[in-house]
Design a binder for these strands. Structure first.
Lengths: 340, 340
DNA sequence: CTGAAAGCGCTAACAT
DNA sequence: ATGTTAGCGCTTTCAG
């Protein structure tokens, strides 16, 4: 059995004995239609299993597709999942559907994905920019009225709205919390690549907190990791140093899991830890994990509402919205610093 | 400045001084084209920032859109994130892009979402069926050649491929592990609604393990929770019983977080726990959490490859693929049962 | 190698 | 209240 063609508007019209336009009117509640016609049309639609072809409609109507294109680095990272959920919740009221794909933080994949979204004429484009990606090619689209939003990190080559967390201030506060509990040897386990915006900002926050406390910056206390395994190894490496850190700051949620896992494995409860980004079981750990929590929901909502405002014609200049992080003290940052 | 129209093929053609078809040929590497024409066309495309309108193309070509529609209950649940990542990885080689939306486990939202996907002529439809949803309306699409796959739970009203975890066997093994360590009072904290397929299956596994051990089924030991807070309350409730459980089985990852959080809060380390579905920090808990892990990656891959096979013309009858779970013993299941 | 005409499924604009 | 015509942006078909 060959894949038989899907029924079209014309098929429905023929079935009922009316014109295509009449069917269109009934389905879109455009113009008037007699009760009887309406009923017959609806019946035929159900009988044939007719499903209007949205692509054909959009092409005729000329407007953008009622979709939002979202590019994230990793669909499996719960942080981006939470952000995506928030975006979806916000745009759904406007009848917009989320299209979501992952770039794996690869500029080429990001480009391929955005091109696909653009070719589908999404109404809104929200991108977590990959490291090394250039976004100049989006300029003409933005000029043409397409809202383009950078999320979590600023983009390169295009002046447009950006929504970011208060990475620097958040990291500063987290590290200051450790300093306040007497620590002077503070390790920083950041993510990769080194050029990643969030990493740079958080590292800057770390350094400013050290500076405030007159603690010299020691490069050997800064290590990097791309995934949880790396982070475990990096943690172990730090703790093997001749003059090891007594406290650790995790640059993101994945790294945090690595640190926590490694400390648990090696039964090191004496090391103080503060992590950037909350983890689901943070409060159940021993000690409970103190974190600088990002507000994923607000990040998503801010991105979505900003985009919707643009869609509604707001042509004011590009904004950068900084969403506050929040230090949640749970205990792991208060492990006593050893006496000097 | 009004939202100026995006350039079309015709615009490019006019710019170069050739016909639209020639531009089309160059871009799709269809038919021949002189080197000079090709160059001029490409230059004009770049200059104008032309982006082919995929909707117009698809409508003319008649085939489905190169997208995969995925409906999950919650974008923020890491389990579905992991599954989505796996699906995307699998279909990307075929040039397919993932479209993803959440149903919030609401049949109406699920229906609206699938209708949107169908209206966009997705190449593949993968659905985590909501409780109470009927899928008879998908029958004609499937007959017409659209691969429809049910994921995580079977669908209702349509015979098609389903990919599920070995819920019953997995739960059985998890509970048996607790029984093997001497427990006779075993609590089950399941998810809601009660009719949820995975809940029923996992509860059945729980009951079969009890039966094997000649432990009578005690309804008062079975409670339900929809989110983490509920699960915490449910756990507390179980532990307040006159003859409380000495071991708990968590019906899913969210519930597991609730149980773990509540036990941590009340400092009850004596309660044995096994959870269905792995958690990221399971190994860092004290005791480390023993789980019945689902293979999210394999679930996603199986769904995607099955769909691709169908897309390639496989018309054999609907299959149900059961992906094995794996008991990962980490310690929390071995808390000693109190002496009788 | 290139172009002209027709048409995909639908709706805007005008009929009637 | 309904039908007709034209055309969205693209590709297929058939001619050169």
């Amino acid at each position: 059995m060959a894949a038989n063609r899907r029924p079209t508007l014309t098929d429905v019209a023929r079935e009922v004995g009316v014109s295509a336009k009449t069917v269109s009117r009934v389905l879109n509640e455009d113009g008037p239609a007699s009760a009887q016609t309406r009923e017959q049309v609806l019946a035929a639609v159900a009988r044939l299993g007719f499903q209007p072809n949205l692509m054909a409609r959009n092409i005729r109507v000329g407007g953008p597709d009622t979709t939002v294109g979202l590019v994230v680095p990793d669909l499996g990272n719960p942080f981006f999942g939470a952000v995506a959920r928030s975006i979806e919740d916000t745009v759904r009221d406007r009848g917009l559907t989320l299209l979501m794909g992952s770039s794996a933080d690869d500029p080429e994949r990001e480009r391929a994905l955005t091109d696909k979204f653009l070719a589908r004429r999404v109404s809104i484009l929200i991108v977590v920019p990959s490291v090394g990606a250039d976004h100049a090619h989006l300029k003409s689209h933005r000029t043409a009225g397409l809202p383009v939003i950078f999320l979590d990190r600023p983009g390169v080559g295009l002046a447009t709205d950006s929504i970011v967390s208060s990475n620097r201030a958040g990291a500063h506060d987290g590290v200051a919390h450790l300093v306040a509990h007497g620590h002077r040897r503070l390790g920083f386990v950041g993510d990769l690549p080194l050029k990643l915006y969030t990493r740079r900002e958080r590292l800057a926050g770390y350094r400013s907190a050290l500076q405030e406390a007159d603690i010299p910056y020691d490069r050997s206390l800064v290590v990097n990791a791309h995934d949880q395994r790396d982070a475990e190894a990096a943690t172990a490496q730090l703790l093997r140093l001749p003059d090891p850190p007594t406290a650790l700051f995790a640059g993101n949620n994945i790294v945090a899991m690595g640190i926590v896992a490694e400390l648990a494995r090696s039964k090191r409860k004496d090391v103080a830890v503060v992590a950037f980004d909350d983890l689901s079981l943070a409060e159940a750990l021993e000690p409970a994990l103190t974190v600088v929590a990002q507000d994923a929901e607000e990040l998503g909502r801010a991105a979505a509402t900003t985009a919707l405002t643009r869609l509604d014609g707001d042509r004011t200049r590009a904004r950068t919205i900084t969403v506050s992080t929040r230090l949640i003290v749970r205990g792991s940052g208060e492990q006593a610093a050893p006496k000097a």
